[in-house]
Amino acid sequence: SSQSQGISSSSTSTMPNSSQSSHSSSGTLSSLETVSTQELYSIPEDQEPEDQEPEEPTPAPWARLWALQDGFANLECVNDNYWFGRDKSCEYCFDEPLLKRTDKYRTYSKKHFRIFREVGPKNSYIAYIEDHSGNGTFVNTELVGKGKRRPLNNNSEIALSLSRNKVFVFFDLTVDDQSVYPKALRDEYIMSKTLGSGACGEVKLAFERKTCKKVAIKIISKRKFAIGSAREADPALNVETEIEILKKLNHPCIIKIKNFFDAEDYYIVLELMEGGELFDKVVGNKRLKEATCKLYFYQMLLAVQYLHENGIIHRDLKPENVLLSSQEEDCLIKITDFGHSKILGETSLMRTLCGTPTYLAPEVLVSVGTAGYNRAVDCWSLGVILFICLSGYPPFSEHRTQVSLKDQITSGKYNFIPEVWAEVSEKALDLVKKLLVVDPKARFTTEEALRHPWLQDEDMKRKFQDLLSEENESTALPQVLAQPSTSRKRPREGEAEGAETTKRPAVCAAVL
């Protein structure tokens, strides 16, 4: 046999249950609850290399294929790409003598399909299967379609040439079993990697079954959420508030809700932002270029202005709740996480202390139980975000031990490091100062900020419009641009040419 590394010779191994799959997660993409704000000051410096380099560890398999027929071997997927077919160049070659004697062998292509993985959001991997055969590759009886790919989820059954000719079961060793999710959700989405997690739940990458488009699904544990919100009269209202707010909003710089499922837990389906959180971008770069800050901040102002015009105060604006559309420097941003939002009543007064301390406005800290506050709290938070983006460190921090965090904020005395700000323009610093004003009545509004000289930049605004146009074009394009080929190089076993392929839609398939 010419099988590559990772293939075992026996096809009769006992199949494990899916609970053996491991679970991976990374930083929070968007969480309903406010958790302790991640610290920006503690960015690790590059460490000196050791005298002796450690040995390379043996790579762990990321997936496993269990053979369902004699003549096929099990495969431990270690590499990122595997070709399957009769050709000797394939990493998994159909060359077992037992297999060659079967009637089905002649229906398999020289290069029938490939399984591979690509880097997705949060640097996690996504597994795909890609059909290159004349007679078809099927996943859970659905045709992939020649020249098309679809994501592979845990426990997928792979069939060759005929939908009933099941050859492998695919085990993704990095994700959960699909069966743990409600059927209504599974009918519409293929669940994938964990993108982030918080005290009350997690955010998962998923794929729409009909279109193969990526989405983010925010899962909120009702049990954990009820415990964490025990002081509230009705904890469920917080989730329902977020859903109702998101459904009503329609702005290019605000995250869109696509679906909602109320089962044992809450499942909020949101558009996916491939670039992750602004927080991670700031930490990764230490600070952002001023031109990049301007492009992002302009969009934040437009989003918050839209919220305020619609009578909504976000109340928890922070870099973790600003998501980026891509890994590119120039990209769209979207505001997310409306769990603490407040729809303005007639009095415009709110007395609930919520939000993240580092970003809270002075009037929030001094008015607990005594007075109210209004939309100006969001403008203060925007000032803190702009400060961080321009400088790479927070204006107020618990680690300045000589003054408490509350006193720093209520006095408006931010930590100004001259040598850092020497590289920032006077106009940018002036806008920061106009937003970090203790008196909410004297603080800049979103309208005033948008009129500030720093943002009178036609090149930046043109760039934003171009990015918007690109997004609109990409969302308007159909996901499947061509029909699967019906040509046949070899006959199917026991049926006429093209008899099955043309009847089945290529579900969740995307043209390369």
Rank of each mutant, 00 (worst) to 15 (best):
Q305Y: 12
N374M: 03
F260V: 14
E244K: 15
I312G: 02
G276F: 06
Q299T: 05
E346S: 08
K434I: 00
L450W: 05
C331I: 00
G276I: 04
V377R: 05
L246S: 04
S326G: 09
V366D: 04
L390H: 02
G355Q: 03
Q402R: 09
E447M: 09
E264V: 08
V366H: 04
Y267K: 07
E447V: 10
E277T: 00
T501A: 12
A442G: 08
L429A: 14
E264T: 11
E290C: 05
E470H: 09
E320R: 04
L344I: 11
K248T: 12
L382T: 04
T486W: 14
Y266C: 14
H308W: 15
L246F: 04
Y373L: 01
I335E: 03
I335P: 00
T347P: 05
V511P: 02
T336I: 03
A291D: 09
F279L: 14
H314S: 02
L435W: 07
V403C: 00
P453S: 11
L344T: 05
D337I: 05
F260G: 12
R315G: 04
L349K: 04
I255N: 06
F260S: 07
I312T: 06
E320K: 02
I243E: 14
E274Q: 09
S348D: 05
A361G: 02
K289H: 12
V507C: 05
N285T: 08
N321E: 00
W421G: 11
T347R: 15
L386Y: 01
L477F: 01
V507A: 06
P357V: 15
G311P: 05
Q465R: 14
L288N: 08
I255V: 06
A506D: 08
T446S: 13
D265C: 15
Y296D: 04
T336Q: 00
G355P: 00
F416V: 12
T356L: 02
D316F: 00
E290L: 05
V366R: 06
A496M: 06
I343S: 08
G392W: 02
K334I: 12
V283R: 07
M350D: 01
R315N: 00
I312M: 09
L317S: 04
G355C: 02
I335C: 12
T356H: 00
Y306V: 08
Q299W: 00
E419D: 10
T336R: 00
A482N: 14
S487Y: 00
S367Q: 02
Y266V: 11
W380I: 00
N250R: 08
V403R: 14
E309V: 13
N250Y: 14
C253L: 05
Y298D: 01
I333S: 02
L270N: 03
T370H: 12
S326L: 12
E471M: 05
K318C: 00
P491Y: 00
E500F: 04
